[in-house]
Design a protein around this nucleic acid. Structure first.
Lengths: 217, 217
DNA sequence: GTCTATACGTTGATAGAC
DNA sequence: GTCTATCAACGTATAGAC
């Protein structure tokens, strides 16, 4: 009886210990470089130097620069799905929206590189993002909000634009952190700054939708 | 008595009719290319082809690729200052904020390329943006909002984060237009979509700040 | 699996005739 | 002012010894 096949990696090749470790290290280094210089602006050479390997090794683990970039993008999307989006019709609107805002701001704080790569990719046309079932996912979100409105639990607003408002406002703290620092004179945004952002945004959005803020522990 | 010197151009050279016309055409073509492919991803060759000139001519009018890029950025910033930011303490808060939201959304609609170039530049570190007196400008904006709050004309929120919320939410409709289209299944955002966005955002923000929407003609 | 050397294309920029 | 021809540098990717 043959052994079960090893789990496939992003390159489709079987995953030994060494391969797994090196792929992870390369993706991590690539994420930093892509976030700072964009896809075109990043060279395989700079990634190789950052991870401490000859650049030929990168081509051994990832067939091409584009393949490595797509692996980085998929890695980001995986983190996204784990961290967000657990709103359901049965939830209390105020509490669910508050949780969403805080989770998204926390993501901007803890994973700013991921947010920036994703932003640049979308701005550049998103040709490397698989669109899969994104539309269904979006329809599900708007349906939840619309159900709240229909039940009189939320002021009547356009659900799609509410989502885009939340998205844009929270994403801003990752993508434009540099500009925010310049404007406010800070050298870097700290946890307290993100907490203040979440609190202000929660305050405005909830009041704007006719909701009272949930009790918090 | 000597004639008045010709107005200086972005290259610092005197401006003849031909030069003025060609520089304008080159900047316009460069804006399209930079918005789609980023700074590094854009080649002088592609800009030259788009504007219908040999690429050597681009180097005749702009000393370098970087010089052309900075000229494009400055051109964008000029448009920005003309279109926005006329809030004053004497204004009615609801009306001033409503005007700001609609002007910013309208800018996302009419000048999406400018918004995208600016966004990518900020995400990439903003090394080509002169920071000038940006901090003073920002302090002025927050001061106006704080004055409204102190006078009891606005719910007490953090002025800085209110500005960032407005910024992020409105900018989103330019930078992430592609993603919005994918999610909503539209092929392109039309004026009605931007109007709906502005209306929803105005509704949420004003209610969120304890304001009633101003009468509109 | 690892690494050196190298092939080959593209890029930004310039020289110099017109 | 305009344009063709060209250069040097850097990019991705691969060949092949270890």
């Amino acid at each position: 009886m043959p052994a079960a096949p090893a789990p496939a990696t992003s390159t489709g090749k079987p995953a030994g210990r060494i391969r797994q470790k090196n792929e992870k290290a390369i993706i991590a280094a690539a994420e930093v470089e892509f976030a700072r210089h964009g896809y075109k602006g990043t060279s395989m050479n700079s990634i190789a130097q950052a991870v401490g390997l000859p650049k030929a090794n990168l081509h051994y683990y990832f067939s091409s620069k584009q393949g490595l970039y797509v692996a980085v993008l998929n890695n980001i999307l995986g983190q996204w799905e784990n961290a967000l989006d657990h709103m359901s019709v049965d939830d209390d609107p105020a509490e669910a929206l508050s949780r969403y805002i805080r989770a998204k701001i926390e993501f901007s704080r803890s994973q700013p590189l991921a947010s920036r790569i994703f932003a640049m990719e979308v701005i550049s046309g998103g040709q490397y993002l698989s669109q899969d079932n994104k539309r269904d996912w979006f329809r599900g979100r708007t349906a939840v909000i619309q159900a709240w409105i229909d039940a009189g639990r939320l002021a009547p607003v356009d659900p799609a634009h509410l989502i885009f408002t939340l998205w844009g406002a929270t994403q801003h703290y990752a993508d434009f952190a540099g500009q925010i620092c310049q404007f406010t004179g800070k050298s870097a945004l700290k946890k307290a700054d993100f907490d203040a952002a979440a609190t202000t945004l929660e305050q405005i959005i909830l009041a704007g939708l006719g909701l009272k803020p949930p009790a918090r522990g």
